[in-house]
Structures are given as structure tokens and as C-alpha cells.
Computed example of a mutant assay.
Amino acid sequence: MSSTRTLISPTQLASRRGRILYRTVLTLVVTTFTLVFLGPLYWMASNGLKSTEEFARIPPTTFPQALHPENYTSAWEVMDLSHLLLNTLWYAFGALAFQLVLDVAAAYSLSKLRPVFGKAILGMMLATLMIPATVLVVPQYLTVLDVPIFQRNLLNSPWVIWLPSVTNAFNIFLLKRFFDSVPQELLDASAIDGASQMRTLWSVVLPISRPILGVVSIFAVVGVWKDFLWPMLTLNDPTKQTLNVGIYSLASGVPENWLLAAIAMASVPTLLIFLIFQRNIMSGLTAGGLKG
């Protein structure tokens, strides 16, 4: 007899009535969740294709009566989305580079080098995950306004986005968890061959860490891409704003259907990242769960 517990027993599933009930419930659940998640995306994209008059109609139409793809072209040109997109890419991939270098170094040190008070340091890092992000906005803003020791104002510079993104305790924890699963025998063999710790990290550990590095990369890019509050506070120069902040700043000067078209276009890159790399995300999150 199988020891696996399921919502529906194999006996019930073997009967015709059980199969019909199971498939009906499954279809309803999947359809409901699909509508909940895809409904807002459809509403956003379809309203961007409506005329101004149809957009303002009450009750709203479910499907556009006439398609107006020129709304997307007009929003792209008037709101200068290409410039905002390049700004966001620059900030996102800069933050990614810093996270890959510094977070990997921190996680590897905590996992394999075993520094003094390493467990206490990791515990304090993880404790920061319990603090709401909005609570840290004021101290972070005062810090970048006048950086201690260096006495520099980082507002309206890429550093104001890059430096706060480096301190990502969740990514460090994910990386450390994966590094913990790397067999110590590999590191010992590398040390016997005369490789330094840096050489071991570069030539042995990182090549087998591609799944988790991919996950951290995706999280880093998406984290900067979707952030709104921090760039709005620290990037007041319109020529240096991110996509989200730029659209918000120009929202009052364009028709609402153009605004929704701009928001739809701004959502496409992150959706594509998820659709393309969803398997990598799942494999990376589960990597390192079992040692050996």
C-alpha cells in the first residue's frame, strides 16, 4: 500500500465519477488563478489599444471596438521610453555586477572560509530581512545624501542605485546555501594542486554554481527594474530617471490610454525574463537543497 497521502485517493480517482470531479475542480482552480493573474495584464494591454473616447466609456468595454496600435508608438516617442529604458538597463546591470562580485565573495567566505563570528554575522544579515524596506528609506537617504568618510552626495548618480542593492541578505543566503552543498573534497583536491582560495572559487566553485548565479542575476535585475520609491526619491533629474519613475513623472501630461500603453511596454522585459528563465529560477532555488 502506498504511503503517499493525496487529496484524492487512488481508489476514488480510478472511478469515473472521481475522475470527472477531479478534472472539473482542477479546471476551475486553474482557470480562476489564470484570470486573477492574467486579468490585470490583459486590462492594461487592451486599454492601451483603445481610443480616448472608448477608454473613458462607462461601463468599460471588455474588448476594444477598434484597435489603435499607434497609442503605443505615440507613448514610446512622447514619453521618451527608449531613454528611460536605457537608464534602467544601466542601473540594473550595474547592480547585477556589484551583487555578483560582492555577494558571491560574502557567501563563499561564510560558507567555506569559516571566519570568526561567521554564524553571528549571518544571523544579523538574516535578521535584516525581518525589517520592512520602507523603514530603511530614511536612514538610507540620509546616508547617500552625505556619505560618511567620503563626504559625497550620491543623489542623481548611478551609485545611489548600485550601492544599496549590494546589501542583499536574501541573495547572500541563497548563495551560501548552495556553496554549503559543494563537496569539500573538490576544494581539498584544488588545494592539493596548489590553487589559492581565489583560484578555487573562480575555477572550481563558480562553474558548478551557474544555476544559483542565474537566479541571483534574475532577482538583481528584476529588483532594480520594479523598484519605484527609492529611484523616485534619489533620481530627481529627468534625464537620469528609471522607467517606472519617468512614466510616473510624465503621467499627467499624456492621455490615460497612452499611459497604459507605456506601462504595458515597461512590463514586457520582466515578463520575458520570467517566461524564458522560469525553469532556471526553480532549479536554482532548489539547488543545494540536498548535500552529497
Rank of each mutant, 00 (worst) to 15 (best):
L206P: 00
K176D: 09
T143F: 06
V137P: 00
G194D: 09
T200G: 08
L89K: 02
V147N: 04
W162I: 07
A106Y: 03
P158T: 08
M124D: 06
Y108E: 04
A191I: 12
W202S: 14
Y141N: 04
L186P: 03
S181Y: 06
K119L: 13
I131E: 07
Q184S: 15
A195P: 04
S111I: 01
G118H: 06
D188N: 11
L155H: 02
A195S: 15
L136N: 08
F173A: 07
A92W: 00
L110R: 03
L113A: 14
A191R: 15
F117S: 09
F93A: 07
A97I: 15
S157E: 09
V104K: 04
F178V: 05
W90A: 15
G194Q: 11
W162L: 12
L142E: 13
F93E: 01
I208S: 06
Q140G: 04
Q99P: 04
V160K: 00
L100Y: 08
F117P: 02
A97V: 14
V104F: 05
M198Q: 13
L187H: 08
W202F: 12
A106V: 10
S209E: 01
A95I: 04
G123I: 05
A127Q: 11
I149L: 15
Q140E: 11
A105S: 15
R152L: 15
A106G: 06
A191M: 13
G123S: 14
N87P: 11
M124K: 09
I149W: 13
T200D: 03
G94N: 02
N168H: 13
Q140V: 01
W90P: 04
I208W: 01
N168M: 08
T134H: 14
P148Y: 05
W162V: 02
I149Y: 09
Q140C: 07
A92H: 00
P207W: 08
D180H: 12
V138A: 09
W90Y: 14
N153L: 10
S181G: 07
I161V: 13
D180R: 10
M125E: 10
A97N: 05
I149D: 10
D180T: 06
L113S: 12
N153E: 07
M130H: 09
M125P: 05
L201W: 00
A107V: 09
V182G: 08
T134V: 14
L163R: 05
L206H: 06
L129R: 05
F93G: 02
D103I: 03
L142M: 14
V160R: 01
A92M: 02
G123V: 08
Y141P: 01
A95E: 01
L122N: 06
L110V: 03
V182F: 09
V144R: 01
W202I: 13
S209G: 04
V144A: 00
